[in-house]
Design a protein around this nucleic acid. Structure first.
Lengths: 214, 214
DNA sequence: AACCTATCTTGACACTGTCAAAATAGATCA
DNA sequence: TGATCTATTTTGACAGTGTCAAGATAGGTT
């Protein structure tokens, strides 16, 4: 999971610096993963890439736009994972739903700071440049909604609600679990057993089949 | 919903400045409510209260500790609202559950920046001084858990799970809805009709009685 | 009256995001 | 080829941030 330059000559490229934009994104993502989102400053990032403080401003309007670009990458990764889940054959639909739910929380727990960036407020609240971000984020949302709708059609998720509402609520549940876990509220990130149990509990609550156990 | 000084002489008090600590908390809360959490800087806060930049450091170890104190106040307010819900008589338990869920999201939507502070990472991730914060936060969590347990005992919430797990998942759902809404992800804060519908959907999913509709 | 100690201020440091103006160098066209 | 254009990068600067160290102040205590 890392940025790749579009060309082969990643090291030294044609223009002044070459693919500064890509390297900024790549280095930014690495800082986020290793030192956390709060440790990412434009200046340190520029230094890491070996360029002056203001060079990034010729590739991103401001810091927020750079963060949006990294977050967009995160959404691409998550969308890919959704595709993988969709493409799995010889698997029951209940199992696919379980995997979807568990994968969602896993993705957040494995990339807490990236997830934090993807769903942190600064990015979404600034109404300026979120257009590019939404372009990558909405497919993921749509994917999830399509999943839910298909499970409703197949009768393993309740049909008393619109697919929009149900997908919003299920998403909220997974998002809420992810947030509480990675923010260290009430429970700890490293307690993977408890996290898995929470996912399992959520899945069972939604699945129609296991309602008899209630 | 505002800080009150313990004494009557709020204006000018005994010591150097008087109840600087309380005024810092009060002014900080006001900034958060009016200008948002990101607009709150120690320096502007000090200026607002009419004191030098470093004066707050004699009442709070650092900025995080001040934020924790404000967040703790938020938890007190929320706990009070939980009590109000608990004390309501001539109301069905299903209705009490509905009200609990709706109130949770309402509280977040009405005080987005305070909620953001209460459940934002910086506060919870710093392991130093969260002791005082937990003292005010955990009663709220416990309250919620007791609610869930009582509803399980009364047979309106599924009993196939431990009250801990179920309360964690229900809390996650409400927290997730709240976060998605106030962070402006996918839906807008001001679309109160949609938010209410999401709450209603979540409530129906959890309540045993409405399972037949599924 | 002398001291103590909590409180507050001034000065300073390192860090941040961002703008304006100058410098550089690849690309384009004569 | 050489001149010019334009995208890119740099240097300098500004306002703002959290926080520390050292000094000033003033109420409470002996």
């Amino acid at each position: 999971m890392s940025y790749k330059s579009p060309d082969i000559h990643t090291e030294k490229a044609s223009y002044h610096h070459g693919d500064l934009r890509n390297q900024l994104l790549s280095a930014g993502l690495e800082i986020i993963k290793t030192q956390g989102i709060n440790a990412l400053s434009l200046r340190k990032l520029a230094e890491k890439v070996g360029v002056s403080r203001t060079a990034p401003y010729h590739h991103f309007k401001n810091k927020n736009e750079l963060l949006c670009a990294i977050a967009a990458f995160g959404f691409q990764v998550w969308t890919d994972r959704l595709k993988t889940i969709q493409d799995k054959s010889n698997i029951s639909e209940e199992q696919r739903f379980r995997e979807f739910a568990q994968s969602y929380v896993d993705f957040a727990v494995e990339n807490p700071d990236l997830y934090d960036l993807m769903f942190g407020q600064p990015i979404w609240k600034e109404s300026h440049n979120t257009g590019a971000l939404k372009k990558d984020a909405y497919p993921a949302f749509q994917y999830q909604r399509d999943f839910i709708k298909s499970w409703q059609d197949q009768g393993i998720l309740p049909e008393g609600f619109s697919d929009l509402r149900l997908s919003q609520v299920i998403w909220s549940t997974l998002h809420g679990i992810a947030r509480l876990v990675i923010d260290g509220i009430y429970l700890q990130t490293n307690d993977s057993k408890q996290v898995a149990e929470m996912c399992d509990c959520a899945v069972k609550l939604f699945l129609i089949e296991s309602q008899s156990q209630k």
